[in-house]
Simulated assay, not measured.
Amino acid sequence: MGRTRAQEAFKPGTEGQFSENDPALALTLARGLMVLKCFDLRNSSLGNKELVEMTGLSKAAVSRMTYTLTQFGFLRYSPSMRRYSLGLSLLTTAYPLLAGLRIRQIARPLMQQMANEIGGVVSMGMQLGRKMVYIESCVSAKSVSPVVAGIGSTIPIFPTAMGRAYLCGLSSIERKELLDTIAPEWDESDNKYLAQVTQALEQYDRWGFCLAKPNLVQETRSVGVAVKGLVDDQHYAFNCGMPIARLKQGQIESDIGPRLFELVRNVELLLGVR
């Protein structure tokens, strides 16, 4: 008989969180994944000593993890630098995920068309913990936007147009469940997140889209729209970023937002979303 998993184990927002006392947890695997998650754009190469400090694991445990991950191609070792970096097995593992997202294949031509028409960047993402992960991004050849997020890059949920739109696209029950998980006490009157969520919902009710937190990125303004309902058991949200230098007064609300809204509705029609 298999081990019983806690009911909360698969709740949105709990990704990356675990307890070593969880009887259903493969602890060695969890520790190996902790090591992998230490690598990012700022930490593209790390030595065992740094990984010990970042994970809190013992030297022996980290040494076993890096050796095993290297054997499977998830890490690469540089003898000259005596440091590790991410390996190609991660890329080959991620490819079936991206290739299997039906919405990417359907939305991309529409996203590229809009990006070309407005000279901006149109992107799509999914929620992971407290962040949104970019799964597609289309940029115009004439775009001068200082922010072009690559596939796999992440942004925070609360201040960004995509993250706010994602929250607005959830049902009230789904939204509360996620917020209770990623930001406990978010709905208390003095909590900074309550005002942000309230503002996003007001904008979404009024326009069908919402804006990023003011001055989030000095040179760019962005707008977000969520896909209605589930697509292959997942929620999605889109955003569009425009350099301020190319925007006219009020254009983000009167033109860019409605364009993105229409794009997302067309994607829904093509997907058969009700």
Rank of each mutant, 00 (worst) to 15 (best):
E174K: 01
V52N: 01
R76E: 13
K142H: 09
M124P: 00
V144H: 06
E202W: 04
M81Y: 07
A99W: 04
R206N: 11
L170K: 10
T160P: 08
R42S: 10
V264H: 12
P214R: 07
F74L: 15
L27W: 02
R76M: 06
A6C: 04
G150L: 10
N191H: 15
I135E: 11
D180R: 06
S85E: 11
I252R: 08
L110H: 06
T14G: 06
I244D: 09
S45Q: 08
A200C: 03
C240W: 00
V231A: 08
G73P: 13
A141I: 02
M65T: 04
M242H: 06
C38M: 13
S145Y: 09
L33A: 08
N48V: 09
A226E: 03
S145T: 06
V273R: 01
E20K: 01
F238M: 13
G241V: 02
G56Y: 15
G272N: 05
P159I: 03
G47W: 11
Q7V: 13
T181H: 10
R246K: 15
T66I: 12
Q112F: 04
V52S: 01
L201Q: 14
T66K: 07
R259W: 00
I173H: 10
G163I: 05
N21M: 01
D40F: 09
Q113C: 09
V139D: 10
V139F: 00
Q127A: 03
R108S: 12
R82F: 05
E202Y: 09
S137H: 01
V264N: 04
L230C: 02
Q203N: 03
R76L: 02
Y95F: 06
E219R: 09
D232E: 15
P79R: 05
